[in-house]
Design a protein around this nucleic acid. Structure first.
Lengths: 227, 227
DNA sequence: CGCCCTCTTGACGCATCTCTGACGCCGGGC
DNA sequence: GCCCGGCGTCAGAGATGCGTCAAGAGGGCG
């Protein structure tokens, strides 16, 4: 669910945009002048701004500069003016895109999607997907396991197995599913692999490997990771 | 100095773009068909791509998808076709902007600047461009590595590899990802390259290259930079 | 034209990981 | 009380991956 701020002083344009955006599951705020736009942008932190340049109270380029002073939110400029100078000025002031009126709604929405998409963090450097137990910690993004203040070295197969279990934390994962996810679709029955590698994981991560508290065996069915 | 890849099969357009771009201190590569474009994009790592959709050998959208498979480099589409469908398709395939021919050079350049600008890393307060370890220092912005008070000379490939690792500090980076980011999308398996260059980096930056403390090998999975 | 820096490529030894079989334990069914 | 299937453990053999060295190819620059 993305939030959009629509800034335009023509009510019918705002109405058309709001209807179309809401139909596509955007959250929409609207402003009819520059001052309101700046206030709403600060208050609501939209993911993208659609900005008409012809506002009653201030120059559109000033709005762009005001925004760019503190945020990199994508700004999609909407304008009736087609001259090249206008476009260059708005783009160089910090706008991300420039669409001239009259515009096609499909195109505008596509440009909006493009703006939102590229604003999304790449591989999110900080999206640490960390799962903790009282004994150890698993960071799925960094591919790191931690225990007693030290890193635990895991082999690729061990990691893969751990990953499947952790992603299904609390749920039972069948032997067949584990085998097929880790070893490939043709390995449905080699449950001895599982026994060996579950033992490795327990030895490396459990406090008392022979009485596992987190890697639980469900006899005849599969295994379960319990945090 | 930014690098631009211009892709168009009309020589006069290419010529006009190359002249204008070079006059503005861009480094320019040019391709007349999709295959060349993909190859050059991989080899030269441009900062932005200007792509004509009407190529002789493949559909422009396919070129976009081919690029988006491994890079987020800004793509500015140039096309004679004005229909909304074309634009939507190209934008949703991953293009960043769409300009119809005939285009104004000023506007195109402004859109190019906008594309490059927003692709630049956000100057966030906490993401310092300098990364330090107790042994050496890496300045990502200045493209310099420092050790024992002296600059360390790195070849382009060494630097590229170091950059990818440092940007993902603490996280495991898979061999495939490293190869594709440094050598291009078609190098997913040549792990011998990695071994050679990791050895170089270690020899130049580690205190004891045979017992690396910062460039950690995770056997079978990839490498990790630890500060 | 020739030098030098880089990148690529192959070969080798070594460490590690994966697979495999054997064995013992435990609980449930007969 | 015995049998049997499923599970945990161990250790060895083979396969794979890694670090290292060295030589050749390619390109830029004087």
């Amino acid at each position: 669910m993305n939030r959009v701020l629509v800034v335009d002083d023509e009510p019918q344009i705002v109405r058309a945009l709001v209807i179309n955006l809401k139909a596509r599951k955007y959250e929409v705020d609207a402003a009819a002048d520059g001052a309101t736009a700046l206030r709403l942008a600060a208050a609501r932190h939209p993911d993208v701004i659609v900005l008409d340049l012809g506002l009653p109270d201030m120059d559109g380029v000033e709005v762009i500069k005001g925004l760019r002073g503190w945020t990199r939110v994508p700004i999609l400029v909407l304008s009736a003016r087609q001259t090249s100078d206008e476009k260059v000025e708005a783009l160089d002031a910090g706008a991300d895109d420039y669409v001239t009126k009259p515009f096609g709604m499909d195109e505008l929405l596509a440009r909006l999607r493009a703006a939102v998409r590229r604003a999304e963090p790449a591989g999110q450097p900080d999206d640490s997907v960390v799962v903790e137990t009282e004994t150890f910690t698993v960071d799925l993004a960094a591919k790191k396991a931690h225990r007693d203040g030290r890193d635990v070295r895991l082999t690729p197969t061990e990691w893969h197995l751990l990953e499947v279990l952790v992603r299904n934390a609390g749920r039972l994962v069948s032997q067949k599913q584990l085998l097929q996810e880790v070893w490939g679709p043709s390995y449905g029955t080699e449950s001895n692999y599982l026994r060996v590698y579950m033992a490795q994981l327990r030895r490396k991560l459990e406090t008392d490997p022979s009485h596992p508290r987190h890697f639980i065996t469900e006899p005849g069915m599969g295994y379960r990771f319990e945090r």
